[in-house]
Design a protein around this nucleic acid. Structure first.
Length: 735
DNA sequence: TACATTGCGATCCGT
DNA sequence: TCGCAATGTA
């Protein structure tokens, strides 16, 4: 039949698998998205499964949307009504309906890590725990780990082996209590609470496990224990679970992902069928072979044999640049050249890197060359202050118990309600055992408040009441406008009149536009749904891949994507592999997988760049080539030496103008050339003196002879990179 | 109570 | 470099 026409035998087998547990081990580029979409279409059109009986979990909301599109393309309207989304969005949907069994109101707020940190700070303050000794995010990450492993506060407490762990357990328990008081859930709760629900309520389990006749999970290698438990529970009646994944692409171990979920699938489901997809359709022979050579260095993996009928293609280009700015400039040049000579679109290109901080220099390079680009990730739209503020108003309207949101906006914009008044309010609410919002209602009874503060609280209370009433029948975008106006937020921004404030006004207008977009698209355009969506949306979801621009993103964000031309920037020891993984072999293997994921995003061309020196958060560091490059056989690589001289002096600041091209390599930066005959031994840490910049110490050296480049940090704070032969430095005695 | 200034620390990946 | 917390001042 037509549905199976363009599938290879393995793919066909996966698509038509009649029932029971199925594991599809899908190598990079082997068409797993295609298989998933076709399998769903097959289930709907041939196996007579209703859309509402299909649960398909993808890694991003964007992937879910695209999957839905593909299925609709295959079977048309018969696809309407499937459960499709990320674990988090699917679970939020389940909890809205079933949560009341656990005592969770359907109006819950979803706290992001920012909200969590605020809450944890409060808790630690209440318990007199120093925020510097135990940073709130550290405690939260322990708690998050526990939750994603389905460990309760009591269990953590009973496992605690030292005072530190006992303290974490205590904070965990207090944090849980605080979340419940605020009628709020964190990301981990979204997964772990449905698991708890299904374990404690056979009826709820029955209801949901019976509904989902078919459960499909994408990127199975990156599920954590809680997600695994959920999959088992939801598929416990029909046992039709189809997991798709690739152990070589597991890159979220640090977030609790447990690769044994995939590796032990056959033990967990003894009657499982395992299908391997090993033909790659994405990359050239060269890129595929090179990436295989890299990943085969990992010990903990299932060996596989990927192959392709694609052409050999061109060699992988490797370029070593002297600094991150040169790297950015070089990337810009190479993209420009490829657009010109190979007739490519900007959207064919992606630049991938390990850390978001690397995007700066690359962005600068592209901007200076006038290339269009988009940065995916980094500063997220919904995490901007003004957006979070407006959203906090909206959350408070839906969920009056949300004290974190209340505290966020009670004095934004300034209405003369300061720390003192707020803490009196909190004291009073604790004393009466009521929420801060309820305490607001009884502002008259709060002790030790002056009349001014009392009346300001009163008018804030009136404002919220007014807005809440309006929210009941006002569409989302209108409500946003109303909040921004009535709260005085817009006026206060406009009054400031700074460039920054005006940008914030624009962002709020963009939020309104987003509200209209939501209004048109959503089947259920309620305020609650809107808040849920914005809580769970990610940058990759918002990324418009059809825009004519080069995409810049982290290696993690690139998972599941593909581009004709991929550049991996910063292939250096300390970046990939990241320095935090040096000590741990398992983490090192994860870094290698990450690098592998990056390489396998490329369809036609792969460029790998590195910088010999990089500005860290303190001074300069000399960088070495990534060990992963050594894993690539030389026959697949072409090393290119970028044209042009290397720079001499560091630009004054990252966005500033670099030294004039005409000067580079010629004019000495400090006005006088040194004698070539005189030889000095320079070593890192040596004390030096410069006539203009005073004393300093050598932070790095690279090159040799007349080409020796020094990085010197002067005591005044200035950092200079210069050719040793021009440096004009006087060596100081050091003891 | 609000706002400016200083000082310090921490720096990966992100639902 | 940057954001945030503590400190100082109107």
């Amino acid at each position: 039949m037509d549905l199976l026409a363009r599938l290879n035998p393995r793919q066909k087998e996966a698509v038509t698998h009649p029932g029971g547990p199925l594991l599809v081990v899908a190598g990079a580029g082997s068409g797993k998205t295609r298989v998933l979409a076709h399998r769903i279409a097959y289930l709907l059109s041939v196996m007579n499964v209703y859309p509402s009986e299909v649960l398909a979990v993808t890694f991003t909301n964007k992937a879910a949307g695209e999957m839905g599109e593909r299925v609709r393309g295959l079977v048309g309207m018969a696809a309407q009504g499937m459960w499709m989304g990320t674990f988090h969005s699917v679970c939020a949907r389940i909890l809205r309906v079933e949560g009341k069994i656990l005592g969770i109101s359907s109006d819950f707020s979803i706290y992001d890590d920012r909200d969590q940190t605020i809450l944890m700070k409060q808790i630690m303050g209440d318990h007199g725990i120093s925020l510097t000794k135990l940073p709130p995010p550290a405690a939260l990450s322990k708690i998050s780990w526990a939750k994603s492993n389905l460990l309760s506060a009591e269990e953590v407490a009973s496992m605690a082996g030292n005072p530190y762990e006992e303290r974490i357990a205590m904070l965990y328990s207090a944090y849980e209590k605080a979340l419940r008081e605020n009628n709020a859930l964190d990301f981990d709760d979204l997964i772990s609470l449905p698991v708890r629900l299904f374990k404690s309520s056979p009826e709820a389990l029955e209801r949901n496990a019976r509904r989902f006749r078919q459960v499909l999970i994408d990127e199975y290698q990156d599920t954590n224990r809680a997600q695994y438990a959920l999959v088992r529970l939801l598929s416990s009646i029909h046992r039709n679970v189809c997991a798709v994944g690739d152990d070589d692409q597991s890159i979220y171990r640090w977030r609790g992902a447990d690769i044994t979920n995939l590796l032990n699938f056959e033990q967990d489901f003894p009657d499982a069928t395992v299908i391997r997809l090993e033909q790659s359709y994405r990359s050239t022979k060269t890129i595929l072979a090179a990436s295989q050579a890299v990943i085969k260095c990992n010990v903990q993996r299932k060996d596989k044999d990927l192959w392709t009928e694609n052409s050999v293609g061109r060699k992988i280009l490797v370029a070593a640049l002297s600094s991150e700015w040169e790297e950015g400039e070089f990337l810009a040049r190479s993209i420009e050249q490829a657009v010109r000579e190979d007739d490519r679109d900007y959207s064919d290109f992606a630049v991938l890197y390990r850390t978001n901080a690397q995007s700066r220099a690359i962005e600068d390079g592209l901007r200076r060359s006038g290339l269009p680009y988009v940065i995916v990730g980094g500063t997220k739209f919904y995490e901007r202050k003004e957006i979070k503020d407006i959203l906090a108003y909206m959350r408070l309207l839906v969920n009056p118990r949300d004290a974190v949101s209340l505290a966020r906006i009670i004095n934004v914009p300034n209405r003369g309600i300061g720390d003192v008044t707020l803490s009196r309010l909190r004291e009073f609410s604790a004393l009466c055992g009521i929420t801060p919002s309820a305490a607001l209602e009884r502002a008259d009874e709060i002790p030790r408040l002056n009349s001014g503060a009392r009346s300001r609280l009163g008018s804030f209370k009136d404002l919220i009441e007014r807005l809440r009433e309006a929210s009941l029948d006002l569409p989302v975008p209108e409500l946003i406008t109303l909040i921004a106006r009535e709260s005085g937020y817009m006026d206060s921004l406009k009054e400031q009149g700074t460039v920054e404030a005006l940008a914030r006004v624009e962002n709020i207008e963009e939020l309104v536009a987003g509200g209209f977009e939501f209004q048109e698209r959503s089947e259920e355009p309620t305020l609650r749904k809107f808040l849920e969506e914005v809580s769970l949306v990610t940058d990759i979801d918002l990324w418009d891949d059809r825009r004519e621009a080069v995409s810049l993103m982290t290696l993690h964000n690139a998972k599941g994507l593909e581009f004709p031309v991929v550049s991996i920037a910063g292939a250096e020891e300390g970046l990939v592999p990241h320095h935090t993984s040096f000590e741990d072999e398992e983490e090192m293997e994860e870094e290698r997988r990450l690098f592998y994921v990056g390489m396998t995003r490329a369809k036609e061309r792969l460029l790998i760049t590195m910088a010999a020196g990089r500005r860290g958060f303190r001074g300069w560091t000399a960088q070495m080539a990534s060990r992963f490059l050594e894993n690539i056989p030389a026959e697949f690589i072409e090393v290119i030496t970028p044209a042009g001289d290397s720079y001499i002096e560091e630009p004054r600041h990252h966005a500033g103008r670099r030294p004039q091209a005409g000067n580079r390599g010629h004019a000495p930066p400090c006005g006088r050339s040194a004698d070539y005959g005189e030889e000095k031994v320079v070593r890192i840490g040596a004390r030096v003196m410069h006539p203009d910049w005073g004393p300093g110490s050598v932070r790095g050296c690279e090159g040799y002879g007349a080409q020796l480049r020094l990085t010197v940090r002067f005591d005044s704070g200035i950092i200079k990179r210069m050719l040793a032969s021009y440096a004009n430095l006087e060596m100081l005695d050091d003891d």
